[in-house]
Structure formats: C-alpha cells, structure tokens
C-alpha cells in the first residue's frame, strides 16, 4: 500500500531541512510532499534549492487549507494512506510505522498519535494541556469517544477519509474539528502513543494568549458540527 507523508510548512526555514532529513531513511517506504503555505520567510527558496518535493500555495490558506491540498493531491495520485507530519521537528518518523499499522490491519480509518497516552516526551505547556483536556470532554460529550490528544498534528488516515477530507475539511484549527467530523460520519478512530519533542526553532502558530480563544472557538465548532450534521 502506497503511503504519502504530507508536511505542512508555514515559515519553517529553520526546521524544514532537518525535518526532511529525518525522513530520508524512510523514503523507500513512503513518499513525502511538503505544503508550503505561502511562507513569507525563505522556506520556498530552501525547498527549491534542496530540490524537495513540494507544493507551493499562492496565498496563505492556513493549516486546514494546506493539509486539504495534500489530501487532494493524494486522492488524484491514488495513495492508500496519508500521514500528516509537522514541519517543525516535533514528530519522530520512527512512529510512522506504528501509526499506519491499525489502518493496514483495517482496525481504524483515522489514527492519532497521542503524546498523553504514555506521558513520555514533551507534554506541552500547562495552559495548553488544560485546554486539550477541555476539548477531550467536549468531544466525549458530542461523540461519546475519548480522544486524549485531539490537537495532535501527527496522524494517519486511509483513502476513504482522504476522499472525505479532500471535499470538506475544517480550515482554521482543523485537528479537533476534523476528528469530530470523522466520528460523526461513522469513521473509526483510534489513538496510539507517540513521543513528541519540543519544536526545534521558531514559534508555534498558537501562542499562549491565543490558546484561550482557540479553545472557545474549537469547542463551539465541535458542538455546532454535531448539531448541524446530525
């Protein structure tokens, strides 16, 4: 089964080379595609010089729109599994195999790499952990399923979900909302433990102050989705 690893990148000039290098030992097994979301630093130049496989978005669509471009690419090229892998060096490609295993066994349509299942590695900051716990409750109430790390950007989906997400995918803060969408539409989800690192350089797209706004917005989006689509 052909697997594509998609790497969203927005202003990742300091991390992207290392991220791709970390994937090189695995490139026999997986293909990769970087999605440059109209970065305004030198990300594009680095991608061109390194002769990387990348798609260059003409306008900044945000993480959701960028990821969706990757899903559309995967759909056209007939990939069976798509792994989302952050461009900031937080994720370890060592876990990709265990991430796609439940899909290969037909046990799940979406596999989420959770950093909280074993509690090893970087556990995020206090305020964010608190926010993720609230999201866990909201998702539990709306879908009756426990997702410990709904904001994880390290996940794998099968081709059925690729087709689904290629058509409709949440745009602003897509991870928790797309999980809800997948569950509500009858797709199977499981989490597996992964170890994450602290991002190498540069700053995360979600600052501490924004986390509160993020939390409220995502919770509302999840509840609304549940109400509208049922």
């Amino acid at each position: 089964m052909q697997t594509l690893v998609i790497i969203p990148a927005f202003n990742e000039e300091e991390n992207i080379t290392e991220t791709v290098s970390s994937l090189i030992p695995y490139l026999g097994k997986y293909h990769y595609l970087i999605l440059n979301d109209c970065s305004n630093d030198n990300t594009k130049e680095i991608l061109q010089e390194g002769n990387y496989n990348f798609i260059d978005l003409p306008i900044n669509l945000g993480i959701g729109g960028a990821i969706q471009t990757g899903y559309r690419y995967a759909e056209t090229h007939g990939y069976e599994i798509v792994v989302q892998f952050d461009g900031d060096g937080q994720h370890d490609p060592l876990f990709i195999d265990s991430l796609i295993e439940p899909i290969l066994n037909g046990e799940a349509d979406l596999v989420i790499g959770s950093r909280f299942l074993t509690g090893e590695g970087f556990q995020s900051t206090g305020i964010r952990r608190f926010g993720i716990q609230i999201l866990q409750s909201v998702i539990k109430i709306c879908t009756n399923q426990v997702v410990t790390d709904s904001t994880s950007g390290f996940r794998a989906i099968n081709n059925q979900l690729v087709t689904f997400f290629a058509k409709n995918y949440a745009q602003d803060y897509p991870e928790p909302e797309s999980i809800t969408a997948a569950i509500v539409n009858g797709y199977r989800i499981i989490e597996i433990p992964v170890v994450m690192k602290e991002r190498r350089k540069g700053k995360s797209s979600i600052t501490n102050l924004k986390s509160i706004y993020y939390m409220i917005k995502v919770s509302l989006a999840i509840m609304l989705y549940k109400v509208i689509k049922k």
Binding site: F54, I55, D56, L57, P58, I59, L61, G65, Q68, T69, R72, Y73, T76, Q171
Partner: peptide, 14 residues
Amino acid sequence: NLKSMAQDLALLEY
C-alpha cells in the same frame, strides 16, 4: 471558492 482555486492553482503549478 477562493481557497478551492488557490489549491487548484498550486496543484497545477506543481
């Protein structure tokens, strides 16, 4: 519509 067109354009440029 704009998002969809930007994606089309990016895929085409690729």
